[in-house]
Design a protein around this nucleic acid. Structure first.
Length: 975
DNA sequence: AAGCCCAGACGT
DNA sequence: TAATACGTCTGGGCTT
């Protein structure tokens, strides 16, 4: 075990006396005296490489347990606990039982499945010792021995030996909620790449490493340093260390890490880039002492390729880096797991969460700065330091450490599982812990290859589409699926395979067991209380407690912990259902998951029916209520009343009324009123959200382009603005006018490029059909393999003008490339394929067929358009200059105006001059803004941040300015 | 041109 | 080795 004391001293603790094991059902006729023969037989079959210390299986216990999978009556059965010497022997021993083998005195022994044989050994240890993840473990005086210099194996401040039985585990309650002052190292490296090629560790040197060290809970780093190759001018408040040789730089950094001994190492994409690069580079330069960054002496740090794929997170190539005793939190991974964003560059993530941009220096410019002088290297160092600081800021702002620790504490898994493993292991941990208390064993089911059986999910009520200018009340079941599992005692341990099984146990329908709407059978709590319902009850009770404590708590730190906890508890409760339905999972039981959804379907139908049946004119209400929409666990009700207050009153009444017809703890809650409400389709709607009758809380949009990451900013912002004008200002006319204006701007090329960027995730390497983002990624790989998007990345593109019948995937292009090469945008595509349908969808319910006029009419007449520079005839067309006054083609001896316009030349010149100076002012303003962002008003702007709107504007204005002054130059000849 | 189907992203 | 679930809309390529 690795840990930290409350004083902040790192500890490596060698725990002795805990061996891996698994269970098998005892063979028939098994008696204690068979043990030696069985032991011999297994060891005979397993035959490990090193058998000097005896066979792989060291002991066999007899225990009374029962399988959790299905109800087996109240009696327990005899199981054998097979104890092995090393975790690595376990799979072999397990295979022998599964395949079968002969034992003297017992005959042929076959056990399939085996039990609890597929749980990670560290987790097994934690479960048995009742240690939760990221929690306190106490070693009492005299129970442990401290190692001295001559037998140390780690670089921790303290190193001790202890026996498993002497460990005292503390549950994270009361005083044990505290968090040790962990040392957090945030770092970033820069390397000098070559033009047009992504840095290659075999060739390109590491030139700088910036480090910040902060104590958990504090806001300011107590160490700030930067290691540079070649001299670097002084930076206030930062320790700069310069090296002439790169080997020295690397060696010093490695020593720094070991000496400073961080508990957590963070950074941005350190897992995918910085760590592997440093390791590869050290190998290329033959820096032998470098790759020992963990706490175990002599354990070499290396990067291993692995691929992680899940339905939720998609497929992603990752690297795993072994740093014994130190946690790694790559903030890029954290962001990708926990937040849905348009882009995951450090720049855009910081803009989103910290409200500030950072300059983004393209890797090809870095070399120029390195090859400059002390000052340019200082410039680079400041940039590098900022990149080391920002991950720390994100970590603090989002309270990642606290939230992750709470998740580890609630689910019981080690901290590092949260970033390296998926969702299932968290449920497994809880299931094992709870099952152990009831002597239930969990079978190690073999994952059946391609068995991806689907079962029916939830009901989505057919929406009564339209624009409602009446308040619509929303009723929601609170934690629907968990409460169904609790109300009906759905669990592995309560499941009856069929009616015959029920009869065998003498169980009577309804009295002892129930049949679900999916025709599955589960025993009632009076026969056996399920494990899953118990886990859920505990989670929900704990959440209630955490929320209650949160209300009372005033200390901001403790509040953060409690808030993190209640969130972790909520997520955990919700993932139990998914776990039971994960067919390619550890322990799927579709009887549970399909019964849960079946109950849900029945309940939403019943809710709709009861509301519409009770709230009628016949029953003395003013109007007949109507359920206009509902999804899974919610119904939207039109009571027909005019005011929000009345809708709220009826909503509450209806919720209570319906709840009274369901079994505890199922609860239908009145949540909010939408007024007005625009219902476009299933899973697509918008409305003003009211929780109190005096004023609305916010505008809420679901599934519409405003919340989707795969439409460009232009579409989201137009739709968002229109909805605001329609719903908040209640001014449809204004929305129409606004839309027309935007369309006109778009067609006249006045819309900024950053507004037109579309992004999509690169899900897989091979696609069945050609797709824009995938084709572009392939093209970009050809241009520069290193900087092109990788699997799992989001690919940004714009649609450019092409030949008439070109497919969209041929017209997708990298926005930066478009900007740099001045390629015209396909504005018509943006109008017809991006804007038109979403606009029609929101305007049609309000304007009816009149909505069509938005897309045709005066504003769609193009006034000026940039000439396409590629394709067909344009190549052969000779560009003739036209008069700046009347656009007629000019004669040879005329350069600015024709002879008719000659008298106006002064006025026209002035106009052009104004335009140039106008653009100059605009450009200067954007330039200063970029300088301010990079933190210096005296230096050149080198930022090329692809997510930054300012960057696009600056580039565009720069280009316009150049064009405009070229036109101005034509007057020189005119005089 | 119509319709199928994949892929992406979202809702719950 | 590891990977919560299903329902729905939408855009766009591909086939008929």
């Amino acid at each position: 075990m690795y840990g930290t004391t409350m004083e902040g001293h790192s500890v490596t603790c060698h725990v002795h006396g805990f061996l891996p094991y698994f269970y098998v059902p005892a063979p028939m006729n098994y008696r204690p005296e068979n043990k030696n023969d069985l032991l011999l037989a297994i060891n005979n079959y397993v035959r490990p490489a090193k058998s000097s210390s005896g066979g792989p299986v060291v002991d066999i216990d007899m225990v009374m347990k029962s399988s959790i999978y299905g109800y087996h009556g109240p009696k327990k059965a005899l199981f054998l606990r097979i104890i092995v010497r090393l975790a690595s022997y376990l799979p072999a021993a397990k295979r022998i039982f599964r395949d079968g083998f002969d034992v003297h005195g017992l005959g042929r022994v076959v056990c399939d499945p085996t039990y609890e044989s597929n749980i990670p050994y560290p987790l097994r240890f934690m479960i048995d010792t009742k240690i939760q993840g990221a929690s306190w473990v106490e070693l009492s005086p005299k129970t442990y021995r401290i190692r001295t210099a001559n037998n140390r194996t780690s670089t921790s401040q303290l190193e001790v030996d202890v026996y498993t039985d002497d460990i005292v585990a503390h549950q994270p309650e009361g005083d044990w909620q505290k968090i040790a002052p962990l040392r957090i190292l945030s770092f970033d490296i820069e390397c000098a790449g070559r033009k047009g090629v992504f840095p290659d560790a075999n060739v390109d040197p590491v030139i700088q490493i910036a480090n910040m060290v902060t104590l958990q809970g504090e806001t300011r780093p107590f160490i700030r340093n930067v290691l540079t190759l070649k001299k670097c001018a002084n930076i206030v408040g930062t320790h700069t260390m310069s090296f002439e040789r790169e080997e020295e730089l690397l060696k010093t950094w490695s020593e720094f890490v070991v000496t400073m001994d961080p508990d957590i190492i963070i950074g941005y994409n350190i897992n995918g880039f910085d760590f592997p690069y440093l390791l590869d580079r050290a190998k290329a330069l033959n820096v032998k002492d470098f790759p020992f960054l963990g706490r175990i002496i002599g354990s070499q740090t290396c990067a291993k390729d692995s691929r992680f794929s899940s339905k939720g997170l998609g497929t992603r190539d990752t690297k795993s880096i072994n740093l014994e005793g130190r946690l790694q939190m790559d903030l890029l991974q954290v962001m990708q797991r926990d937040y849905k964003l348009r882009s995951y560059t450090l720049n855009s993530v910081c803009a989103h969460f910290l409200g500030e941009q950072k300059e983004d220096v393209h890797h090809s410019i870095i070399t120029d700065l390195q090859n400059g002088n002390d000052e340019t290297r200082r410039r680079l160092a400041i940039y590098c330091l900022k990149d080391a600081y920002l991950p720390q800021r994100l970590l603090d702002k989002l309270m990642c450490v606290i939230n992750y620790m709470e998740m580890a504490r609630v689910t019981g898994v080690p901290f590092n599982y949260l970033l390296t493993r998926g969702q299932q292991i968290k449920v497994v941990s809880q299931l094992y812990r709870k099952a152990k208390t009831e002597d239930l064993l969990i079978p190690a089911l073999e994952v059946e290859g391609s068995e991806d059986v689907q079962y029916e999910g939830a009901t989505v009520i057919e929406p009564e589409k339209g624009f409602y200018e009446l308040p619509i009340a929303t009723l929601d079941f609170t934690s629907l699926y968990p409460s169904i599992m609790m109300a009906h005692n759905l669990c592995y341990s309560t499941w009856l395979r069929d009616v015959r099984t029920a009869e065998q146990h003498g169980l009577v329908r309804d009295k002892d067991y129930k049949v679900t709407p999916d025709n599955a059978l589960f025993v009632n709590p009076s026969v056996r209380k399920g494990i899953l319902p118990t886990i859920l009850e505990d989670l929900i009770a704990a959440r209630k407690r955490a929320k209650g404590d949160l209300k009372k708590e005033t200390d901001p730190f403790k509040r953060a912990v409690l808030d993190g906890r209640q969130l972790a508890l909520k997520i955990s409760a919700n993932s139990v259902y998914g776990f039971t339905g994960a067919t390619i999972g550890k322990l799927p039981l579709l009887a549970i998951s399909s019964s849960v959804t079946a109950y849900g379907r029945v309940m939403i139908e019943e809710t709709k029916m009861r509301v519409e049946e009770k709230f009628t004119i016949a029953n003395g209400f003013e109007h007949d209520a109507q359920v206009i929409y509902g999804d899974t666990d919610s119904v939207m009700v039109k009571f027909g009343v005019k005011t929000v207050a009345e809708a709220m009153k009826l909503g509450r009444e209806a919720a209570d009324y319906v709840t009274s017809h369901f079994q505890k703890p199922i609860n239908l809650d009145f949540e909010k009123v939408y007024f007005p409400y625009l219902l476009i389709n299933k899973k697509r709607y918008a409305g003003l959200y009211w929780t109190n009758p005096t004023k609305h809380d916010k505008m809420d949009t679901k599934g519409i382009e405003t919340v989707r990451r795969d439409s460009c900013r232009l579409v989201s912002s137009v739709i968002e603005t229109c909805l605001k004008k329609i719903l908040i200002d209640r001014d449809v006319k204004a929305a129409e006018e606004y839309t027309k204006g935007v369309i006109a701007d778009l067609l006249q090329n006045k819309v900024d490029l950053s507004q037109l960027v579309i992004s999509k995730a690169l899900g897989k390497a091979e696609y069945a059909a050609k797709q824009a983002h995938n084709e572009l990624a392939a093209r970009m790989r050809k241009r520069d393999a290193g900087s092109a998007p990788a699997l799992g990345d989001r690919v940004a593109y714009v649609i450019i003008k092409g030949t008439k019948d070109a497919a969209a995937y041929e017209k997708a292009e990298d926005p930066i490339y478009v900007l740099e090469n001045n390629i015209p945008i396909d504005t018509k595509y943006y109008l017809e394929n991006q804007l038109s349908k979403p606009l029609m969808r929101i305007f049609e319910p309000i304007l009816g067929s009149k909505a069509q006029t938005l897309l045709s009419g005066d504003h769609t007449r193009v006034i000026s358009v940039a000439a396409p520079t590629i394709g067909g005839l344009m190549k052969f067309a000779v560009k003739t200059a036209t008069c700046l006054g009347c656009k007629t083609p000019l004669k040879k001896n005329e350069s600015a105006v024709c002879h008719h316009c000659k008298p106006r030349v002064g006025e026209l010149y002035q106009r052009q001059l104004d335009s140039v100076s106008d653009l100059e002012v605009k450009f200067a303003r954007l330039w200063t803004q970029c300088q301010r962002c990079q933190g210096s008003l005296h230096q050149d702007v080198i930022c090329t941040a692809q997510d930054c709107p300012i960057f696009y504007m600056r580039k565009k204005v720069q280009k316009d300015m150049k064009d405009s002054s070229m036109v101005l130059d034509r007057f020189n000849y005119a005089w």
